[in-house]
Design a protein around this nucleic acid. Structure first.
Lengths: 249, 249
DNA sequence: GCACTCTAACTGTGATCACAGATCACGACA
DNA sequence: TGTCGTGATCTGTGATCACAGTTAGAGTGC
């Protein structure tokens, strides 16, 4: 497991090198620090579920894997810990938090409120370009989910892109950040599940919810968009609560 | 201004020394790091509105003021920046974020959703002890607000305690943390306003909302509790939007 | 063969130093 | 007197070292 982590980190380090160059051109003109880069890489790893709950990280190992000193890693880990995406135990150890069933339920209820609100706002404010982008993401997601065998990684990415585009379209940056933070917490659980249980993708509840969402958005039906998102979240959460192997606590 | 900040920091450093000792006995048995202590002090400063929006901080000055090295301050500032409570500008500067009117409106809308939800949950789950604690906080708040001259600092503290007790009573720790983070962002604006415009306290809209809240809680009226909190937030936000001196952007 | 002890390696935390970029005040020139 | 340049100072970032506490594994005793 540790070995997998390191290989993942090295892999992402290379990706981030090129991706960083691309982002430097597109994104903010402000030069990003090394700490920002490490933060982004660890964040992507967590969001994609590449780091399993309970998995321990070592600042030195991570630093060596992506070829920087310990300092930027410390900064990144501290920020992720502030986000609740990592946990720094008093006993000199940092790990991916282990979520209990109760915590997962709470997270789901908050997601219903916050993402439902964002969906309703997005129905009012989304541009045509936003809706087109979401339709494309939905198309990619469905293709990946219905492939045989399902392309789980692509499905996870497309699913996130679909949701992120929706929430960004609400036009409330702070709300978007808060939701992203929730996804960061849920990522290890949700995506680990999606990858381990690809059959769920073929069930179609997600595809169905996404279709209903797009239909609602096209007629600016805020309540309908909220219902669609709530159905999507609830279905996924119910499945994970059953099979996610969460601690009883 | 800078001088005030430093004196505030030194003041809090002394307070935190004794408070830390008390907390060590009451709170988590895990020994807190220096970084945690600095984080708590800066957080308290921000929450109380002692640091004005736009005010610049210096890692070295803060470190010297509370007599630690730069490292714990770096960690604390990074965590606060992740919370959105501080801002690290690319151009080697860290400051309290300046909130625009639009950002404040967004923050208020999110607060209405999140704190309204928490109030509704609290109405279901609050214990008698919780309600008693809130009644006491309300009493302290009213006394401080109606005194002549109004004791603004005490009022701010009591107000926060009242709300915090309510949200904690919802029994959703993650939700509570998210709300606290919102307060941390709004703190510099809200409390700076409360201190500068103590007359608002005498207006009674807050006192009125608090009374309605307690009445609703006592009969487990979730919808009523939500309405009371929404009224409290809306009234305060409307006042600040008028007189808070927020940037137009 | 099993349990225990002790040590060596490893952990995050904190301090200190080096460095490049930003800032600001002082001084020179027009 | 006004404006521009310039260098001393201060900024956050990153690296390196020291340290105490934890952990895991090898060795020893039963």
């Amino acid at each position: 497991m540790k070995i997998n982590v390191q290989s993942d980190l090295q892999h992402l380090a290379q990706d981030a090198f090129s991706a960083g160059g691309a982002l430097a051109g597109i994104g903010s003109l402000a030069k990003e620090t090394l700490g920002d880069r490490v933060y982004g890489e660890l964040r992507a790893l967590l969001m994609a579920g590449k780091l399993a709950p309970g998995e321990k990280l070592s600042l030195r190992k991570v630093a060596e894997a992506i070829d920087v000193s310990m300092m930027p890693v410390r900064e990144a880990v501290n920020r992720l810990a502030a986000d609740g995406a990592l946990e720094v135990l008093p006993g000199r150890a940092v790990r991916v938090p282990i979520m209990s069933l109760g915590q997962f339920h709470e997270l789901t209820r908050i997601r219903l409120v916050l993402e439902g609100f964002a969906a309703e706002e997005a129905a009012r404010n989304a541009s045509e370009a936003d809706i087109v982008a979401m339709a494309e993401a939905e198309h990619v997601f469905r293709a990946a989910a219905e492939a045989d065998p399902p392309k789980s990684t692509e499905a996870v990415t497309a699913n996130h892109q679909l949701h992120a585009t929706l929430y960004r379209a609400a036009g409330m940056p702070t709300l978007f950040e808060m939701i992203e933070r929730l996804w960061l917490r849920a990522g290890p659980v949700i995506n680990l599940d999606m990858r381990n249980d690809v059959e769920r993708l073929k069930g179609g509840s997600a595809v169905q919810a996404h279709a209903a969402l797009l239909a609602a958005l096209r007629v600016r039906d805020g309540a309908g968009a909220r219902r669609a998102i709530e159905a999507d979240i609830s279905a996924a959460a119910a499945h994970i609560a059953r099979t996610g192997g969460l601690a009883d606590d």
